[in-house]
Nucleic acid binder design. Structure first.
Lengths: 106, 106
DNA sequence: TATATGTGCAGCCAATCGGTTGCCAAAATT
DNA sequence: AATTTTGGCAACCGATTGGCTGCACATATA
């Protein structure tokens, strides 16, 4: 069973859950009310998100509030950084090239 | 057939392909050499990535060079922005709360 | 104490995924 | 003209996914 954050956010329902929870912690029932699928399905999604360390649970009586562990989202940002760096290098190379051409003209 | 960028980057092979191609455009065969799977599998991945508008093709003779359409990657960044904003608002609320407490003490 | 509510787990199922092999077409090489 | 190289497509297959139902269990409430 592969379980990483990229696989976790691949599902649109799970992405919506993350956005919902980001605003404030919610119980599985409250979340399920927002979707057209069963509470059990939501529960499965919450388990998957939890296994990726994206969620924290806070028990209050018989209710469980799930909240987003926002720090984990940084992992995606870190992955994106690779591309930002590659693009930056590419632009620098382009600048260098343009500079060389300019000097040759002189 | 669902086909969005989040589903596209869910697969680790596809993520690796994106990083490879980001550096410079490559042919399917050249990409396949870097992995332990068949050229046909790579071809499938390239098709999926293309369907998400993540890749551009440049034909040179019988070779096809695939290159990354870096702009499409911004979509992920835009999605992450939601969370950045929510977090910012949360911190501002916290600041406000701390300010109110401070003033009440006076 | 009996009942209602909140939650998670197990098992089922159709659809999708990610790999494979086999094949064909176009371009390059001999 | 025959052969090699490059690349895509189709069909197949086992594993995974994302939904469902049914059930069990703990906690509130009557």
């Amino acid at each position: 069973m592969r379980r990483d954050i990229f696989q976790a956010i691949a599902d649109p329902t799970r992405r919506a859950i993350l956005v919902l929870i980001a605003v404030h912690a919610m119980t599985p029932n409250a979340i399920a009310e927002r979707f057209d699928i069963t509470r059990q399905s939501i529960s499965k999604h919450l388990r998957i998100l939890s296994e990726c360390d994206l969620l924290a649970q806070k028990q209050k009586g018989r209710e469980i509030f799930y909240e987003l562990k926002i720090d984990k989202m940084k992992e995606i940002d870190i992955w994106l950084d690779q591309f930002r760096k590659i693009m930056e290098e590419r632009f620098q190379l382009l600048d260098q090239l343009l500079y060389t051409i300019k000097n040759k003209k002189k």
